[in-house]
């Protein structure tokens, strides 16, 4: 155990080097775009994994929070002429408020109830994104989102967006790392593992859970804003059911124990379909099969195994 923990800084350094070097090693702008997508999805997946790890609750509304952030940022940029950073702030705020409102209801119920309520909230938001076409421009999506303007530069290439997403991911990881060591983080850990014990200790379980859930939504909203700028358009499809499946797969592959685990999941889920493109129409089926193999064969042996998500506790 100790040896592994000592190796952790080395591991992290290696990962950072790979993350920074990769877009220079890969020339294809197409693959640089894929890398940007991986970084964006990593932000959302890391948040979801931490919510599972801290609260032992599985939220199924991550795509809705991301979509909400994307729409909020799009409207701020297109209709109000805001630049990217304040628009991303609005995206974070929108996602936090939404998560807090849903959390106020969902944390009143059991673990299963929590998943079902968040899933229902996701359905409602998908529906709103289609039907409120004055605001969201309906099923066709909200188009015309300008590229990110940062410090007087326009980040149009996949590579530059990748670095922006990577910077945000890095800030998120540092914040989560600090949170794990904070007093409130340790109290939250007790709340997640044993709510009765937490109650006996006077820890305000419910409000702490709602706060943590809302705070974890902020990066998801920002990921949505990045996604909108990356694609230039946000459509209700971003909030849809397939996205829930994708993001769950990322968390299952990466596990919830290690902070960076879901990043590996995001790499697998985002890039596998690209690698499998040569298969033509049977691609999705093969992708599903590969996912099953990864989860069944590899996950139980990995240190970042999916234990918390699959119910098995070490």
């Amino acid at each position: 155990m100790v040896g592994r923990e000592r190796l952790a800084p080395l591991w992290s350094l290696g990962l950072v080097a790979v993350a920074l070097g990769a877009p220079f090693a890969i020339e294809s702008s197409y693959w640089q775009g894929v890398m940007a997508a991986i970084a964006i999805w990593s932000i959302a997946a890391v948040s979801l994994a931490q919510a599972v790890n801290w609260m032992m609750r599985l939220s199924l509304m991550t795509p809705a929070l991301m979509g909400l952030g994307a729409y909020a940022a799009a409207i701020a940029q297109v209709e109000h002429g805001w630049s990217f950073l304040p628009a991303a702030g609005i995206a974070a705020l929108a996602a936090m408020v939404c998560a807090a409102l849903v959390g106020l209801v969902a944390f009143r119920s059991s673990h299963w109830g929590f998943s079902i309520i968040t899933f229902a909230a996701n359905l409602i938001l998908v529906n709103l994104s289609i039907s409120l076409d004055d605001i969201t421009h309906g099923p066709g999506g909200y188009a015309g989102i300008p590229p990110v303007q940062l410090f007087g530069r326009s980040l149009e290439s996949g590579r530059s967006l990748y670095f922006l997403a990577l910077a945000i991911l890095a800030i998120q990881l540092c914040a989560l790392w600090a949170w794990r060591r904070s007093v409130a983080g340790r109290s939250a850990r007790i709340v997640g593992e044993d709510p009765q014990l937490a109650q006996a200790l006077g820890i305000p379980c419910y409000s702490l859970q709602v706060c943590v859930f809302a705070a974890l939504a902020a990066p998801v909203g920002i990921a949505g804003a990045l996604y909108g700028s990356f694609r230039g358009v946000v459509s209700p499809e971003l909030l849809g059911f397939t996205r829930i499946v994708d993001i769950l797969a990322m968390v299952m592959i990466g596990g919830t124990k290690l902070l960076f685990g879901p990043i590996l999941g995001a790499i697998a889920v985002t890039s596998l379909p690209e690698w499998l493109r040569f298969l033509g129409p049977s691609r999705d089926g093969v992708f599903g099969l590969v996912l099953i193999l990864i989860v069944v064969l590899a996950a139980p042996r990995w240190r970042w195994r999916v234990s918390t998500l699959m119910g098995a506790r070490s």
């Binding site: 904070s182 007093v183 109290s187 007790i190 200790l201 820890i203």
Partner: peptide, 13 residues
Amino acid sequence: TGAAWIVGSPRWF
């Protein structure tokens, strides 16, 4: 440390 959350005034960090 987590258990001592409510000792004195709660500190977040």
